[in-house]
């Protein structure tokens, strides 16, 4: 498909459609739940145990959390893919999530009463170190196939993850660990998700550096030729990715495949000019996660399928399709 086909008026129309669709999904997400909302109670804002409270304390926070996680995880996936110059990399397949979890575990062990800000700081630093180590390995090993890259990331994640599990097991923190690595929105309540706005903010900041990420995606020589400091762009990107991942892991838990699938779908249609694609990646990520969440809550109503399972199933199928199609082209 030519990129021109999606520019100017058609571009805007699609964007508006997607935003409307996301709003509809958000509305549906707010409406769905075990407690059925009563519109009359909401209008009068009466506060017996009732619709208004459910809406404000549980439903809206949950939907906002989904939107923020969906958008920010997808954007970090896209940044990782540009920085590593590989389409199969995301915070979930480069050791970032596992490193961030290890960071939280360490701070929890050393200082059990740590305030959440400290936990996030530790998780961010650990995530940065882990991801930088991953990128360092990539530079040392000559890559025969682009598929090697995510395999190495998954292996690294596995090693870090097993260290984390070992200590979590010894200190009886396996349950907390599970909560960090498997995202779950059912625990989201007013007062326990607001940090996610920080993710949203960081994601917005990264948009200002969009062109830098595209240039970095063209390689070190290109970046230097265009007058940018490659190392600095990498460090900035890594910091954003690690910080967003840390916040997400601490508040809701990581969502697998999201950062991998969403940017790849957008890239296949629109290419990789980050300034152009970033808003699409964000909105499509939010939409995709909202849809998965609604599916997870309605398929076995009134029970709930964990969102990471739904995203895992849908995402892995989509990922396989991308892999197979890419494989054809590479060969």
């Amino acid at each position: 498909m030519s990129a021109r086909a999606l520019s100017s008026p058609a571009h805007t129309r699609w964007m508006v459609t997607l935003i409307l669709l996301t709003c509809l999904l958000a509305l549906a997400s707010v409406m769905i739940g075990v407690y059925s909302l009563n519109w009359h109670d909401i209008r009068t804002q009466s506060d017996e145990f009732d619709s208004w409270m459910v809406l404000v304390v549980s439903r809206v926070p949950r939907t906002m959390a989904i939107i923020l996680i969906g958008a920010s995880t997808s954007i970090t996936g896209m940044i990782m893919q540009m920085l590593s110059r590989n389409k199969f990399v995301s915070p979930g397949t480069s050791g970032t999530v596992e490193s961030a979890s290890l960071g939280i575990l360490i701070v929890t062990l050393l200082y059990p009463a740590a305030p959440i800000g400290l936990k996030i700081l530790f998780a961010t630093m650990a995530g940065m170190i882990g991801t930088a180590f991953f990128l360092f390995i990539l530079r040392q090993i000559p890559m025969k196939s682009p598929l090697m890259v995510p395999l190495i990331g998954i292996m690294l994640g596995g090693v870090i993850g097993s260290i984390t599990s070992f200590y979590a097991y010894r200190y009886e923190l396996l349950q907390s660990l599970n909560a960090w690595t498997n995202g779950d929105f059912s625990r989201v309540l007013k007062g326990r998700y607001e940090l996610l706005y920080l993710s949203g903010l960081l994601t917005a900041i990264s948009w200002f550096a969009a062109d830098r990420f595209t240039v970095a995606g063209l390689g070190e020589s290109f970046t230097t030729n265009l007058g940018l400091n490659y190392g600095r762009v990498m460090a900035f990107g890594l910091a954003i990715v690690a910080a967003v991942t840390a916040v997400n892991v601490v508040t809701v838990g990581a969502i697998p495949f999201l950062g991998l699938v969403v940017p790849n779908v957008v890239s296949a249609v629109m290419g990789d000019n980050v300034r152009r694609t970033a808003p699409w990646v964000a909105i499509f990520g939010a939409m995709f996660l909202l849809a998965c969440d609604i599916a997870g809550r309605t398929l076995r109503y009134p029970y709930e399928i964990p969102i990471s399972v739904v995203v895992g199933v849908v995402g892995s199928v989509m990922f396989l399709v991308i892999l197979l199609r890419r494989g054809e082209r590479v060969a």
Binding site: V215, S221, L226, G271, D272
Partner: peptide
């Protein structure tokens, strides 16, 4: 400078790429 072996994974249009030549002036 233009070196050999300019293979990359990023999907850019010709126009996008050429526009990046202006990056030192317009910063995107």
């Amino acid at each position: 400078i233009l070196r050999q072996q300019n293979h990359f994974e990023a999907r850019l249009t010709v126009e996008d790429l050429v526009t990046f030549g202006r990056f030192p002036y317009c910063k995107g």
